[in-house]
Amino acid sequence: MHVPATLVRGGTSKCWLFPQVHMPTDRDRIERILVDAYGGADPVQLDGIGGATPTTSKAAVVGASACEGVDIDYLFAQVGIGTGTVEWGSNCGNCATAIALYAVAEGLVPLKKDRTSVVMRNINTGAVLEAEVDTPGGRVQEFGDRTVPGTLAGGVPVGLTFRHPAGAATGLLLPTGLPVQELTVGEQLLHVSMVDAGAPVVLVDALGADRTGAETLEQMRAEVPWLRAGRHAAAIRMGLVQPGAEPGDAVPKAGLVGPPVAYTTTLGESVAAHEYDVSVRMLSMHSPHPAIGLTSAVAVAAANLIDATVVARASTAPGSHVLRIGTPAGVLAVESSGATAAGPERVTVARAARILCQARILVRDLALPAAA
């Protein structure tokens, strides 16, 4: 049997979006369908629609929201690669960008002249996001020319705002109450900031760990094992998992933070140190992120507003409401507003999206709703 789905590029990720009306409501059944459709038990996902990388093995179940003031509810899924499982504990800003364009194209929100607003709720975390999709003259665009760091391809402009992003997972911007603390990983003593904004993250002081924070993707591959160990240790400190529980790789996000230095992007572009404020290299699940996840960028921007965090210490613009983050793919600007002790009220990033195809995904008979 089959289930309809739409493939959309949002920022630097690709997400298959599944209409809620054609999917079961039980999360276990959804997981079985996604693992089957993606070939999720296969490390190369050859017999499925997955791309065998963390940024191309994503999905969301999307539907109209019954919540007042919210247009769209979505359940985000990070489909495992070779694991036969799905991580449900996080959000994805790039997929939210894709969902915003999808909602406009599918008529799930009324079109407005020039720009159409889409308010979305991430079911996984309860986070509420607002997107402004370019709809010139009240028309849906199939193509656009806005680019983002990490790809030369243009897309439809989408402004994505995270509303009150702090504490969605743990209840606090600083889950441990400290802006910086020591974390022992193996024989290493790390100085880290644990922040919950957009997503829970553990950010490591790169210089203190004898790194730069501006490593190439190839160099970052060698850092994956100890950064994953740091993630697992931080998850316990942040209250995300109980001691002795099986750790996951979705949260907290983990990465290195350092001062700006000159470097060359993955697309071969030269970036001078004065062109950005702080270097960041993140993991995506068990691999180096080719750019930076938007939820991680939100957390970095929030940390930059807090005295003494590893971000504020490394940044050339600590406390600034506009932070330019140097990533492997280039420089990403993040704007915060309405800063309070509990965290910023809004964090906004300029993105782009494009609908790539509509398909009927063949899956095994897993008791889909009759509408499928």
Rank of each mutant, 00 (worst) to 15 (best):
A291P: 01
A41T: 13
Q219E: 15
V3T: 13
V79L: 05
L129N: 00
A367T: 12
G343N: 02
C15S: 15
A98H: 04
A233F: 04
A59L: 06
P110I: 06
Y102Q: 04
K112Y: 12
A153T: 13
P136N: 11
Q141S: 15
L174K: 01
G268T: 00
H274V: 14
P288G: 08
K112S: 15
A301M: 10
G89A: 09
E130K: 11
T264W: 05
V298M: 03
E335R: 14
A197V: 10
V86S: 00
A153F: 11
T264I: 10
L203N: 00
G137V: 07
V61D: 04
K112M: 15
R9V: 05
R27N: 06
G69S: 09
T184I: 14
G126N: 02
E31Y: 07
A308G: 10
P259Y: 06
Y276K: 04
P157L: 13
S57H: 02
L183K: 01
D134R: 14
R32A: 14
A299P: 08
P175R: 00
P175A: 06
T85C: 02
L7Q: 11
V349K: 02
V156L: 07
D277S: 11
V261H: 11
A359L: 11
I123K: 13
D249P: 09
A312S: 15
I30H: 00
G319Y: 15
T12H: 06
D210K: 08
W226C: 00
V204P: 01
W16Y: 15
K113I: 14
C95L: 08
Y74W: 11
A303Q: 06
L283V: 06
S296M: 05
R211N: 05
T170M: 05
Q181W: 00
P165R: 03
L46G: 11
V278P: 05
V8F: 01
Y74E: 04
G258F: 02
V180N: 13
A234Y: 01
D28H: 07
E142R: 15
A166V: 07
A250R: 09
P175L: 04
A302M: 06
M1E: 10
A5H: 06
T309C: 13
A272P: 02
H289E: 02
R32W: 03
A303S: 14
R146C: 11
P175N: 07
L75R: 13
A64I: 11
T327G: 04
A168T: 08
D42L: 10
V140M: 11
V3A: 09
A169M: 14
A262M: 05
G268N: 00
D28F: 05
L294F: 07
G82F: 04
A317C: 13
V331R: 04
T212C: 02
V185R: 01
A359I: 10
T316S: 15
T116F: 06
I361P: 00
